[in-house]
Structures are given as C-alpha cells and as structure tokens.
Nucleic acid binder design. Structure first.
Length: 509
DNA sequence: CGCCTTTGACCGGCGC
DNA sequence: GCGCCGGTCAAAGGCG
C-alpha cells in the first residue's frame, strides 16, 4: 500500500491507445536501453504507472532496467548495452532471426499491449473516480458552509429583532439562545426583574460578539491556519466564538463504545491533568484545546465505571478559533447540543435545526441525557447503541473516519435507544424527544450526505462511509485518497496516534 | 527546541 | 473549621 504512486496528473503517453507501445521504436535511431536508462521522465513515469498495477514490488528507479531484463529473459533477446548493435544487425541480417521467434515476440508484445490498454482504461476509470469524489467533496463543503452562513445570518437577525422590539419584554420561550446561559444559571436566585435586565445585557453581548466573529474572519489571526500543520480550516459559523465563562459551564458528554483510549475529534488537545474520580476505578484525564492560544475548550476523557469499554468524553466551552474540517462535525454537534440544552427551544438553537420533512421518520427513542443533578448542566449523547451493530468509528484506521462517523452516529435513528430526559431541577427547559429529533435530523441534512448513505449497507457500506468520511475530512486530497483506499482494503488501526495510544493505554487501563 | 505528558501541589466549592 | 472532591497549575522530564 505504502508503495503506491498514483499520479494522475499527466496522460500516460505509452498507454495511450493512439500510440502503440513498441519497445523497439521507443527511441528512434536505436540506443533504446541507454536513452531510457538515462531517464526520459515521461517514459519513466509510464513505467512507474505500470508498477501501480503490478504485483511485483518494483523500485521506481530500477523499472527501466527490469523491463529490459524482462525482454531479455522472456524473449531470449540480448537487450543489454549492445542493443543498438543487435537491432541494427538484425535489420541488416534480415532473415537471421527465425520467423517463429518473431511470431512469438509479436504475440507477447500484443499481449503486453492489451494488458497495457486494460491498465490504461483502469487508470482512466480511477482518475474519473478521483475527480468525482473531489467534486462531490467540494460541492458538499460549499453546501455545508452555505447552510452554516444562512443559519448565522438568521440568528443575527433574530438577535437584532429581539433587541429592538423586546428590550423591556418579559422573557419569552423563544429567547435568543446565547442570551439563555446567564438566564439559566441565575434561574434559582434571580427575580423576574433581574432576569429582564440581565437578558438585555446578554443580548447586547450577543450582538457584540457576532460583530467580533465577523471581524475575526478578516483578522490576521486566521493566518495562523495557513500553516502546514492544518492545510485548510473552516470557520464554524454556527459555533459561537465566546469566552463567556457561563458558556463554559455547559457540558456536552459523548458516550461511545470504543477500544481506542481517546476518540479523535479533529482538534489538538493537550493533557493538563489526570485525577482519580470518586466512584470510578479509571482515571479521568483533562485536556485543553491547543489549536489557538486562549481557547477555552476543555474536555475530560474517562472510561465509564459501569462498562469500561465505554469511553465518556465531556466537552466544555466553545472554540474561539477556526476549526479544521475534521473538527467541525464534532464541534457543531457539541455546540448544538449545548445550545439546545441551554435554550430549550427549537427556535433558538442556532438556526441549526428547523422543522423538517424527515421529522416523521424518526424512530424513537434516541439517546440523549440531560442532567441537572451534575454541578453543571450536562447533555449526554449516548452513542453506545449503534443502529447497525458495530459502531462506525471503531475498526477504521483513519481518524477522519471516526471524526465524522462518531457525531453522526449519534443522530442515526434506527431505534438506537432511549432518550433519557431528566428535568429534575430544570423547570426552565422544555425539550421533547420530537424537538431533539427534529434538530438532529436537520443536522443530518446539513452534514455531508455520504455519511448516512452508507448506513444501510453492511461491510462495504461501512468501508465506503469511512472512505468518504476520510476524503471529506481531509483537505489534502491525496492523503484522503490513500486513507480511503486503506479503508476500503480493510485496514485496521486505532483512532489515535500510536504514541497517544500507548500513553493512554497506560493511563486509562 | 518545542510540544507533550506526568504528577504532586494547590485552590475553591460544598457538605458536615 | 475541616475534610472531601473536582479541577487546575506548573515543574520536571520525555520525545521527535
């Protein structure tokens, strides 16, 4: 696998149907072996392409020589350095070479030509596939960004309207989502009047932050993301850029069955602590996002006490920087869940999810736990009940596959479990199964569709899902293609780097 | 050298 | 006030 060189940038000259490949006519005037060996790039590339389909492990630099040996051995012709002389002599001597030998040679050459033509066709087909996948990826990315932009625009308009018209109104059910965190945190101790005043200030903050968000896209800060570490990043416009400490109090917990010590979510994390938590024999690891200086996002990773095959990842906070495409899915998921938790209203969930035609297709119940008994309001997405047996994010060696499959899997229905809804101290929330499901399905519509295309099918479907996810997640198309091929070929691996795996295995047991 | 993990110390909230 | 607990800090060391 690692030896593949898939160069589709140039037409394959010698494979071209219009130019028949003839080893004796490769170099007009003779000296075929010498000239080829000294390297005409086109020809060398062509021969390298041949190796792509060969079962033999050729080195690129030696291919030409091997070809020569091939002719020499199989056709019983001396094609060594004296090839010029041989060819020349043959043309002079004419009948010295037996006609049966020539026939055999011609037959074998024809076979080789046929083989090459088949390879050429196959190569063309692969190129078309690559092109199509690339186009699909670009189209989906554009669509996704467009939807996110629309959603942000809607939210901004809603904020402005509320600010203009409802400055002195009572809190309404459809309060702007970002205004809710403080509102929620103060519920138990604030009077109605307090809520009104706080809400107004929150709304002002919201608009102010929106302005900052827009400004940030044009600031030199974004230049950070032109580094070669992350070739291309997407500003998650649905994700609020805020350092508001109240937002950090909301947590989104993702529970997933995985042997991997840590689920790769596309972000860069630095571990800053580890503690033994009460009631759990497995240590809890603390990570902070290191993709930008001052990013407030934290996450905790811990195996579940009741079932240590289940990994619980708890996110807290909102990224204050653009995210790589691979991280957008998870960040969007957690952000939407957090906002949903805080707003308790479909109309205020970031414009993320409005009503949709698929709502009736929901096969409840989902798994999402909202807990107010924890120190901080927490919504838990339980991904341990995959719709079709094996969780998608396990068993694929490309992190990108898990990055995308994991959040999406939470939203695949198929009777995946029950939505546990605990409102104990949550009088302010209303969140029905239907609402969550509506939002969830809307998210599905905004996500690259190939993910759920793959769901109904078994192994190949999963492979395809992993492949398409990898391609979608990886801005480097070549790398993504390699990952995709690996996935299709059934590679195994972890969702994290070997180093991390080793370390985390030691830690997490 | 930069980035990461490790790990003991420290801090603040909470219950008794 | 004290102890427990969750969360964070920061120095030390490892790694590529």
């Amino acid at each position: 696998m690692g030896n593949f060189t898939l160069d589709t940038s140039e037409p394959l000259v010698l494979f071209n149907k219009t130019s028949r490949w003839n080893p004796f006519s490769m170099v007009p005037g003779g000296a075929a072996a010498d000239v080829v060996a000294e390297g005409q790039d086109n020809r060398r590339n062509v021969l390298s392409e041949m190796d792509l389909f060969s079962t033999r492990n050729h080195s690129h630099n030696r291919v030409v020589v091997k070809k020569e040996n091939f002719l020499g051995n199989d056709l019983d012709l001396n094609t060594g350095l004296n090839l010029v002389t041989m060819v020349s002599n043959r043309s002079k001597m004419g009948d010295d070479i037996s006609t049966t030998g020539e026939d055999q040679t011609i037959d074998k050459l024809k076979d080789i030509q046929n083989e090459l033509e088949r390879m050429n066709i196959e190569n063309q087909r692969l190129r078309e596939m690559c092109l199509q996948v690339s186009n699909n990826y670009n189209a989906l990315q554009t669509h996704f960004v467009t939807l996110m932009h629309q959603q942000e625009q809607e939210m901004r308009n809603e904020n402005i309207q509320n600010l203009d018209q409802n400055a002195n109104d009572h809190l309404s059910h459809d309060q702007v989502s970002v205004a809710v965190p403080r509102q929620f945190m103060e519920l138990r101790q604030s009077t109605h009047d307090h809520l009104i005043s706080r809400d107004s200030s929150s709304e002002e903050k919201t608009i102010d932050r929106d302005t900052k968000t827009i400004a940030r896209e044009d600031t030199p800060d974004s230049d950070v993301w032109t580094s070669n570490k992350v070739p291309k990043l997407v500003v998650p416009e649905n994700i609020e850029h805020t350092n508001d400490p109240t937002m950090r109090k909301v947590r989104v917990s993702v529970r997933a069955r995985s042997e991997a010590p840590m689920i790769s979510d596309g972000c860069q994390w630095r571990k800053y602590g580890q503690k033994m938590a009460k009631g759990n024999p497995c240590p809890r690891a603390y990570y902070r996002c290191t993709m930008a200086v001052g990013c407030p996002v934290r996450k905790q990773v811990q195996r579940w006490a009741d079932d240590q095959t289940i990994l619980v990842t708890t996110y807290e906070g909102t990224h204050n920087h653009p995210l790589p495409p691979a991280a957008v899915a998870m960040a969007s998921t957690t952000s939407a869940a957090a906002t949903m938790l805080l707003s308790g209203s479909t109309s205020s969930v970031d414009g993320f999810m409005n009503s949709n035609l698929l709502a009736q297709a929901i096969r409840p119940p989902n798994i999402a736990t909202i807990s107010a008994s924890a120190p901080f309001p927490t919504i838990t997405l339980d991904l341990t009940h995959p719709p079709n047996s094996t969780p998608i994010f396990e068993g694929y060696n490309n992190p990108a596959a898990s990055q995308f499959a994991m959040p999406l899997q939470a939203f695949h229905q198929g009777g995946s479990g029950a939505m546990v809804y605990n409102q104990s101290r949550f009088s302010g929330l209303h969140l029905s199964n239907n609402e969550l499901s509506n939002q969830v399905l809307q998210y599905q519509q905004t996500a690259p569709p190939q993910h759920h295309q793959s769901q109904p099918h078994a192994s190949f479907g999963h492979s395809l899902s992993a492949a398409t996810a990898a391609i979608t997640a990886d801005p480097n198309f070549t790398a993504a293609l390699a990952a995709a091929i690996t996935s299709i070929m059934g590679g195994n691996g972890s969702t994290i780097s070997p180093k991390n795996e080793e370390n985390n295995n030691r830690e997490m047991g």
